[in-house]
Amino acid sequence: QEEEKEIKRLAKKFNASEEEARRAWKKAGGDPETAEKILKKKG
């Protein structure tokens, strides 16, 4: 599933848990760029 792959990639890229990545993904409405910004800010 595309979403799961994206979440795993985000978690790995930002050294975050999949739970954090999933939360960022949901907050971003499934937009990878926005999710990255959220995780970057958090990191």
Results as ranks from 00 to 15, higher is better:
42 K>I: 13
34 T>I: 15
28 A>T: 02
10 L>D: 00
7 I>K: 01
40 K>V: 08
21 A>K: 00
36 E>R: 03
19 E>C: 09
32 P>W: 14
32 P>Q: 08
13 K>P: 00
4 E>L: 09
35 A>H: 00
12 K>I: 10
15 N>Y: 06
41 K>H: 14
37 K>D: 10
1 Q>W: 14
4 E>D: 11
5 K>L: 14
35 A>K: 00
37 K>H: 09
8 K>L: 10
13 K>H: 05
30 G>E: 03
3 E>P: 06
25 W>M: 14
23 R>D: 15
16 A>C: 15
30 G>I: 01
36 E>N: 03
27 K>N: 10
31 D>W: 03
38 I>P: 00
22 R>W: 08
24 A>Q: 01
10 L>Q: 01
19 E>Q: 09
25 W>G: 03
34 T>R: 15
28 A>P: 00
8 K>M: 11
28 A>W: 00
37 K>R: 12
14 F>Q: 02
20 E>S: 07
14 F>N: 04
18 E>C: 10
16 A>V: 15
42 K>S: 14
39 L>F: 03
38 I>V: 04
36 E>M: 07
3 E>D: 11
1 Q>R: 11
24 A>R: 01
6 E>M: 13
35 A>R: 01
41 K>C: 11
25 W>F: 12
38 I>Y: 09
42 K>R: 13
38 I>W: 05
32 P>T: 11
24 A>L: 02
34 T>W: 12
12 K>Y: 06
24 A>G: 00
18 E>Y: 15
30 G>K: 06
26 K>H: 14
14 F>M: 10
16 A>F: 07
25 W>Y: 14
35 A>Q: 01
33 E>T: 10
19 E>D: 11
14 F>Y: 14
43 G>P: 11
34 T>L: 15
1 Q>E: 14
19 E>H: 06
34 T>P: 01
31 D>M: 03
20 E>H: 04
36 E>G: 08
27 K>H: 09
30 G>H: 04
37 K>V: 07
4 E>M: 10
31 D>G: 01
6 E>W: 14
9 R>A: 09
20 E>G: 02
40 K>N: 12
37 K>S: 10
21 A>H: 00
2 E>P: 09
40 K>S: 14
2 E>M: 10
5 K>G: 08
36 E>W: 03
10 L>R: 00
13 K>L: 12
8 K>P: 02
34 T>F: 12
24 A>I: 04
20 E>P: 00
17 S>A: 05
1 Q>V: 12
40 K>R: 14
30 G>V: 01
20 E>K: 03
38 I>E: 05
4 E>S: 07
2 E>D: 14
27 K>T: 12
40 K>G: 14
14 F>I: 02
37 K>I: 11
8 K>G: 06
5 K>F: 13
35 A>D: 00
35 A>G: 00
42 K>A: 13
33 E>Q: 11
41 K>Q: 14
10 L>H: 00
8 K>N: 07
19 E>R: 07
32 P>H: 07
32 P>I: 15
13 K>W: 04
14 F>G: 02
8 K>E: 08
21 A>I: 07
15 N>K: 09
12 K>M: 10
8 K>Y: 05
38 I>A: 03
16 A>Y: 05
9 R>W: 04
24 A>S: 03
17 S>W: 02
25 W>V: 08
41 K>P: 07
7 I>S: 01
24 A>Y: 02
6 E>G: 05
41 K>R: 13
23 R>P: 02
7 I>Y: 03
11 A>Q: 09
14 F>W: 10
1 Q>S: 13
23 R>T: 11
24 A>E: 02
1 Q>A: 13
36 E>V: 04
11 A>E: 04
2 E>W: 15
24 A>V: 05
35 A>C: 07
40 K>D: 10
15 N>D: 08
22 R>S: 05
17 S>T: 13
24 A>W: 01
25 W>N: 03
28 A>S: 09
35 A>F: 04
11 A>T: 04
42 K>L: 15
43 G>V: 14
18 E>P: 06
6 E>H: 11
10 L>V: 02
5 K>S: 12
34 T>M: 15
29 G>L: 09
21 A>N: 00
32 P>F: 12
39 L>Y: 00
11 A>M: 15
34 T>S: 08
2 E>S: 10
19 E>V: 06
35 A>W: 02
22 R>P: 00
38 I>T: 02
14 F>T: 04
33 E>G: 08
40 K>M: 15
28 A>M: 00
23 R>A: 15
12 K>N: 10
30 G>Y: 04
20 E>W: 04
11 A>K: 04
35 A>M: 05
30 G>N: 04
20 E>Y: 03
14 F>R: 01
9 R>D: 06
14 F>L: 06
36 E>Q: 05
6 E>N: 08
8 K>A: 09
7 I>P: 01
35 A>I: 06
38 I>H: 03
6 E>T: 08
9 R>H: 05
8 K>Q: 13
27 K>W: 11
20 E>M: 06
4 E>H: 07
4 E>V: 08
18 E>H: 08
30 G>T: 02
3 E>Y: 12
30 G>F: 04
29 G>N: 12
17 S>L: 04
5 K>Y: 13
36 E>H: 04
35 A>T: 05
22 R>D: 04
5 K>R: 14
23 R>I: 11
32 P>K: 11
42 K>T: 13
22 R>H: 05
20 E>F: 03
40 K>I: 10
12 K>D: 10
11 A>S: 06
34 T>H: 08
43 G>Y: 15
16 A>D: 02
13 K>C: 08
2 E>F: 13
37 K>T: 09
21 A>M: 03
12 K>S: 09
15 N>E: 06
7 I>T: 02
23 R>W: 14
4 E>K: 06
39 L>P: 00
43 G>L: 15
26 K>A: 13
19 E>A: 10
26 K>R: 13
8 K>I: 10
1 Q>N: 13
26 K>P: 03
42 K>Y: 12
43 G>C: 14
37 K>M: 11
42 K>E: 14
39 L>I: 05
11 A>N: 01
7 I>N: 01
21 A>S: 04
26 K>G: 09
